[in-house]
């Protein structure tokens, strides 16, 4: 048995530069099983970059990522990089949901959900089909299974995106501003699915500007600023008594009117 305190996901000293600009400057973060960590921060503070380093869509310059004590991206010594196959195997254990949905437009909704479990995990097709249908049911889209992504609303697309990630039975889900591209009236249906996931005990890292969601759902909040975790606390502490000036002005901007 795993100790409850032992993190499922661990980020240590993460650094990343783009063209000479240091975007991440030593990020440390640990996520225990069943926790939802909300990552907040101003635009350009590197939130997406952190998520993309976690599943190695971006290669960090320094630091390490651990998924249940297995190092992501390179082997134990931290020198020998993982092969494409090894990377794919470890990526398949983490689900990712994109701001732009990133559905595959040439596949139907059901095919979008089924393609990876069949071809990546090699699970039997009939079995996957049932699970995919159950997943679509869970996000409330059973009736759209034969539709193509282009005919869906943004909220529906994002729920397909979530179903597509969930069907892989990931150990952790990474959300990169899943509602930022949505019309305001469609945000709720996506957040509702995410709240449900949190209740069911899914481990999640959520980048979001939805402060109400962070306050209600987050186990803890990490506030990113200038490439560092500037504050790391419970949502209560963060939203009622932010410690840094940057966090205070950030909160003023994003909670205005809500």
């Amino acid at each position: 048995m795993q100790q409850p305190s032992e993190p499922l996901l661990r980020i240590e000293g993460l650094e990343k530069s783009f063209g000479g600009n240091k975007i991440l400057n030593g990020i440390d973060l640990a996520v225990a099983p069943h926790e939802t960590v909300c990552m907040l921060g101003p635009s350009g503070s590197g939130k997406s970059t952190v998520l993309r380093c976690i599943n190695w869509l971006e290669t960090p310059d320094a630091g390490a990522i651990f998924l249940r004590d297995q190092r992501v991206g390179c082997h134990e010594d931290g020198k020998k990089p993982m092969s494409d196959r090894e990377l794919s195997e470890i990526r398949a254990r983490m689900g990712m949901v994109f701001q732009s949905f990133a559905l595959w437009p040439h596949l139907s909704v059901l095919q979008n959900v089924m393609v990876a479990p069949i071809h990546v995990q090699g699970r039997p097709k009939t079995f996957v089909r049932e699970e995919a249908l159950a997943m679509l049911d869970k996000v409330g889209l059973s009736d759209k299974r034969d539709a193509f992504p282009s005919s869906l609303s943004g909220g529906q697309k994002q729920r397909v995106g979530i179903a597509r990630a969930l069907v892989m039975k990931p150990e952790v889900m990474l959300f990169d501003e899943p509602t930022s591209a949505l019309d305001p009236e469609l945000v709720g249906e996506v957040l509702q699915v995410m709240r449900q996931l949190a209740r069911e005990g899914m481990t999640m890292v959520v980048v979001t500007h939805e402060m109400a969601f962070a306050r209600d759902v987050a186990s803890h909040v990490a506030f990113l600023d200038q490439g560092r975790v500037a504050e790391h606390s419970t949502p209560d502490a963060f939203f009622t008594a932010p410690k840094t000036e940057r966090a205070r002005s950030f909160l003023k901007r994003y909670t205005r009117g809500s």
């Binding site: 869509l57 494409d84 689900g95 994109f98 990133a102 559905l103 071809h119």
Partner: peptide, 20 residues
């Protein structure tokens, strides 16, 4: 982003190309 999604879902280079 479609290519990123294929990577994030654990598709190897060959699968990403052939399926997506």
């Amino acid at each position: 982003d479609q290519y990123d999604a294929a990577m994030a879902m654990g598709m190897t280079r060959g699968l990403r190309f052939r399926l997506i």
